[in-house]
Nucleic acid binder design. Structure first.
Length: 762
DNA sequence: CTTAAGAGGGTTTTT
DNA sequence: CCCTCTTAAG
């Protein structure tokens, strides 16, 4: 068989990886070194040369986008040969396993997935339910802690709190949250992974089955795996699986959410005979850009060590612009983009990369002013929108009445007279009797006496509405679902709601209503559509449009063979899909737009012209990373990621003064700027001479002195005759009015007028 | 239940 | 400064 298409286009290192004999491999793939190509070609090689059947291969990625791309490229590479091949995200694969083995995993068949937002709301209710002070135990942080524990593979019962009261309470929250999830049949993202891992450990027969099946494991972006994902892979590999991991320790930028770069080295220890292959030839950037990237990343310790090189041209030097303030910075960047477009370039080839989302604003304003189309990545995605989640919560309830997260959301959206007081009665009952909100409502209606007539009717109406919806969707409901019927609630009493219109097509005995019609039905019958149509707030129109789009999305939705095999019905499959793939953000990717995004979301992308903005101490590296060496190194890797996004031209900017959180802050240029060799840099002069040049190399070697060169740089150590020694932490104003905030070791934090305070730089 | 004023918090993000 | 969420008043 001719396999030249698999290897012809590869360089030596790539070919070594693709054609490697059986065994474990760590492919250290530098930025732009053809990582995805190696991964896909390796799969092609296994299949066509080693004759590994597709079903024996498991390829794991982190994002849906990456797995989609991999699948598409595989389809091209081995036409028709991807049947049975498993490509997916960790979460997607764990989800499939749990669907197929729900019983063994201890889950209800109809379990639903809780997204991050749902999770936080639920934690919040749990915190309130435990009678804890939300200020002392912010739900946000509690949820974060729970996720960290899960990512470490820990259950509430195996956490040592060692009498530490705060930890003990957090464990309590964790426990209560888990109970709530179990009662409601809900599984959050981290839980998908943890359950799947526990499935391996507790069900040896199932584990063995998959060990026999997936003998070839390929993992993308390995440096981003967390402890649990690593453990999952390791257990699955067992003693027979062959593991091929691809990653780059220099691009590990997700440590803060539990990713463990250490896994890369751990892999070499845990997998006997594992070999390392380095991909160092870069096909993306000019040599100047690579030199800059190398010289920045070199300052990190403990690297596995790679040095990117290119056979390509030296290219332009890196332009560095010292802006007067953030507005000047935005003006400059947009001006350069206009020039670029005017000359030959396209808007979509330009990217503005920043450290934090808040920075996009100034650039957006400038872009709007100059009528340049742009797209901001990140932000709310389709399935995360409130109106979409509202609509889906009705569907979730029809699928599973115990879904408390959906209940809480749907019950009074749109308002139907079920306010906090009523809900508190139900919540209390649910908590005391350890039941779901739905059960609590039923029980309150039939034997409780805490609700007044009006509230009672409203609740009754809500319950029957959901039952009616479920009935309309699938005329013979699964046993155990039509509970209001069992408890003698009249099916047709929906006092606050109009009775449903006859369905198009009349009677459909035993026929399940098509998904899109179910959703349309739910949107109309719930009153959501009317509610948003009459909504007086600004974006009502787009909300209604989104609801329409949801119906469209549903009509286009098709179950995958996996969904069918796992025994999912269309609704469950759709709901899972909505949670696991939140969908694209707004804006059409094919439009010719300037791209704005954070450095984090830029990973994996490339652009001919890149603007790396806001390179200031305190912003990038961020203030919170500066104190800790480990976090600082992660910031440096972020800088490395940013630089290596550029193909032809890189422009770096920083502002001397920036409005942050309302006040004017002075900032020194980022240390990362100083780590770029001055010989590679072109300092761009401001049009109007407004400020001293501060950049590139100079500041790093000799910080400007305080006396002659006001305003002082932040971070400067100073001495004061009466307050002693301290560090300048911020500054305000300019010239004679400059005031400095100094953190004194003994005297604490003080604001001083720079002109009068007798400060001596140390 | 709706609206307005106030408090609090402001890296980074996917699933 | 700007956004979100909570709370108080209507």
């Amino acid at each position: 068989m001719d396999v030249s298409h698999l290897i012809d286009s590869l360089n030596d290192a790539q070919r070594e990886a693709v054609c490697a004999p059986p065994g474990h491999y760590l492919v250290l793939a530098g930025a732009g070194s053809g990582k995805t190509r190696v991964l896909t070609h390796r799969i092609g090689w296994l299949n066509q040369v080693e004759h590994v059947p597709p079903w024996a291969i498991l390829a794991v990625t982190f994002t849906n986008k990456a797995s989609g791309e991999m699948r598409a490229r595989l389809e091209q590479l081995i036409p028709g040969g991807t049947q049975g091949l498993t490509v997916g995200t960790f979460h997607g694969i764990a989800h499939r396993l749990l669907r197929r083995h729900w019983r063994e995993a201890g889950l209800p068949e109809s379990f639903q997935i809780l997204d991050a937002d749902d999770q936080q709301r639920l934690v919040k209710r749990v915190v309130a339910g435990l009678g804890l002070d939300e200020a002392r135990f912010p739900p946000r942080q509690a949820a974060w802690q729970i996720n960290s524990w899960k990512d470490e593979g820990k259950r509430a019962e195996n956490i040592e709190h060692g009498q530490h009261p705060v930890t003990r309470t957090l464990v309590q929250i964790y426990q209560a949250y888990e109970d709530a999830c179990r009662r409601a049949g809900l599984v959050d993202f981290a839980e998908l992974l943890l359950r799947a891992h526990e499935l391996w450990l507790k069900q040896p027969a199932i584990l063995e089955h998959y060990q026999q099946r997936w003998r070839y494991l390929l993992i993308d972006e390995f440096q981003d795996t967390n402890a649990l994902q690593y453990a999952w892979i390791r257990v699955l590999a067992g003693s027979t699986g062959q593991v091929f991991v691809v990653g780059d320790d220099d691009q590990a930028i997700y440590g803060w959410r539990g990713a463990k770069v250490e896994n890369v080295q751990q892999f070499l220890r845990d997998f006997p005979g594992a070999r390392t292959i380095k991909l160092e030839q870069n096909y993306r950037s000019t040599s100047n850009i690579l030199k800059a990237a190398n010289s920045v990343i070199e300052r990190n310790g403990g690297r596995l060590g790679k040095q990117l090189w290119t056979a390509g041209e030296e290219g332009e030097r890196i332009a560095v612009y010292a802006a007067y303030n953030e507005q000047d910075e935005a003006r400059f960047v947009i001006e350069r983009i206009r020039e670029y477009i005017a000359e030959h370039g396209e808007a979509k080839d330009c990217a503005i990369l920043y450290r934090s989302n808040a920075q996009s604003r100034n650039f957006e304003e400038q872009l709007i002013q100059h009528d340049i189309p742009y797209r901001v990545y990140g932000g709310l995605r389709f399935f995360e929108r409130a109106e979409i989640k509202d609509a889906l919560s009705y569907l979730r309830l029809t699928a599973n009445r115990h879904d408390d997260a959906a209940f809480e959301r749907a019950v009074n959206t749109p308002p139907r007279g079920i306010g906090d007081r009523t809900l508190d009665v139900l919540r209390r009952r649910a908590r005391n009797e350890r039941m779901s909100m739905w059960e609590a409502a039923l029980s309150e209606l039939s034997m409780g006496n805490e609700l007044a007539g009006r509230a009672k009717n409203a609740v009754k109406g809500f319950l029957s509405m959901i039952d009616e919806m479920a009935h309309a969707f699938a005329p013979s409901p699964p046993r155990g679902e039509g509970w209001s019927e069992e408890l003698g609630l009249p099916k047709d009493s929906a006092p606050d709601n109009p009775s449903p219109n006859p369905l198009p097509g009349g009677e459909r005995a035993n026929a399940v209503l098509p998904l899109a019609e179910q959703i349309d039905h739910a949107i109309v019958q719930s009153g959501l559509r009317e509610f948003y149509e009459k909504d007086s707030r600004g974006n009502a129109e787009s909300r209604v449009e989104n609801l329409d789009e949801l119906v469209n999305v549903a009509s286009r939705f098709e179950m995958t063979p996996d969904d069918i095999e796992a025994g999912l019905n269309e609704l469950s499959a759709f709901l899972s899909h909505a949670a696991l793939e939140a969908g694209e953000g707004q804006g059409e990717s094919w439009d010719n737009c300037v791209q704005l995004m954070t450095l984090h979301s830029a990973k994996g992308l490339e652009f001919p012209l890149v603007f790396l903005v806001g390179l200031e101490e305190g912003l990038f590296p961020s203030q919170r990373s500066i104190e800790d060496e480990g976090r600082l190194e992660e910031e440096r890797r972020l800088a490395y990621v940013g630089i290596t996004r550029a193909r032809e031209r890189l422009v770096i900017s920083h502002a001397e003064s920036r409005r942050m959180h309302g006040s004017e802050m002075l900032a020194r240029p980022s240390r990362f700027l100083g780590e770029v060799p001055p010989s590679l840099v072109d300092e761009v002069r401001p049009r109007v001479q407004v400020s001293r040049p501060l950049y590139a190399g100079r500041f790093a070697a000799t910080p400007p002195s305080l006396k002659e060169d006001l305003p002082v740089k932040l971070g400067q150590r100073v001495s004061h005759p009466s307050f002693g020694e301290g560090v300048v932490v911020s500054a305000e104003g300019s010239g004679a009015h400059t005031r400095l905030q100094v953190n004194f070791e003994s005297a604490g934090s003080k604001w001083l007028v720079a002109a009068y305070a007798k400060l001596t730089p140390l």
